[in-house]
Amino acid sequence: MTASSLEIHGLQIEGRAGVLVHGVDLQLRRGEVCALVGSSGSGKSLSCLGMLDLLPQGLLRTGGELTADGQPIAAAQVRGRLASLVLQNPRSAFNPVRNMASHGLETLKLRGIRGAAARERMDHCLAAVGLDERQRVLESFAFELSGGMLQRMMIALALMAETPFLLADEPTSDLDALSQARFLDLLMALVDAHGLGVLLVTHDMGVVARCAEQVVVMEAGRVVERQSARGLFDQPASASARTLLEAHQILTGSYP
């Protein structure tokens, strides 16, 4: 299954406390990075998970139509087929009693790839994400690999699944500066080489400046601004965007 765009229209998420995400629209395009930004608690991570119906227990998507190239599609048809997910804490995404080879073989089996072809494909995808000690990595369990290596393994699994879109929820927040830079270099190389469409959930405006073409700003569960990254940095229209940019300037001493 292929598509050049993936969209959610009118996404609404509710919990016991009431409505947490109000009518959010998001659009991903192949070969483009869209950053979803906002302060903690703004609803950006929930929106990312809500697109794929992967919300935590107690939360429910009560509104929103998911479309691929303008045609309605169920989230179950998108997960692992059109879109892969990279989580903030990659260790939690892996079964702790199964090694990386097991995860890879399961992903490839769903695509009908088995045996020697599966091993060859795994080696190719691990090489593509810079995991050079491929045999050691494939024999390792999640607790035996660093956070940066697990992030790369998650992207390798996305390559194995051949999904055209990647949803990345705060993927650099648990990484040190060097691992963060390597991850972002890898992400942009894959966008260029494979035409990935990426939704990048972050509060780091330096990451936005480096990677994103489009930016959507959330506050209190609502979209309060959307424009090009350059336009946002040059002339932010919302108080939330201005606050994020000011915080970045204070922390780093520079403006993106």
Rank of each mutant, 00 (worst) to 15 (best):
R210T: 02
G197K: 07
G195S: 02
V216D: 06
D185P: 11
M188V: 05
G206A: 10
T202M: 13
P171H: 06
G195H: 02
L187S: 03
D185N: 15
A212D: 03
E213V: 05
L186I: 09
E213C: 07
V208R: 04
E213T: 13
D169P: 08
E170T: 10
L178S: 15
V198M: 12
A177G: 00
T172G: 01
D174K: 13
L190D: 07
G206L: 03
L200V: 08
Q180K: 14
L186M: 14
M188Q: 15
L190S: 07
L200I: 05
D176N: 13
T172N: 04
V215P: 07
V215K: 02
L190M: 06
S173K: 10
D185Y: 11
F183K: 09
S173P: 09
L196P: 13
A177L: 12
E213Y: 01
S179K: 10
E213D: 14
C211R: 07
S173D: 08
L178G: 00
M188I: 08
E170D: 09
M188T: 07
V207K: 09
F183D: 02
E219W: 00
L190E: 06
M188G: 05
R182S: 12
D204V: 12
L166P: 07
M205I: 02
A168H: 07
A189E: 15
Q180W: 04
V208K: 08
D192R: 15
G195W: 02
C211V: 14
D174R: 14
L196I: 13
V215F: 09
S179T: 11
T202G: 10
T172D: 02
G195M: 02
D192K: 15
D176I: 11
F183L: 15
L187D: 04
P171Y: 07
A209M: 03
L199A: 00
M205V: 03
F183Y: 13
E213A: 14
V207I: 14
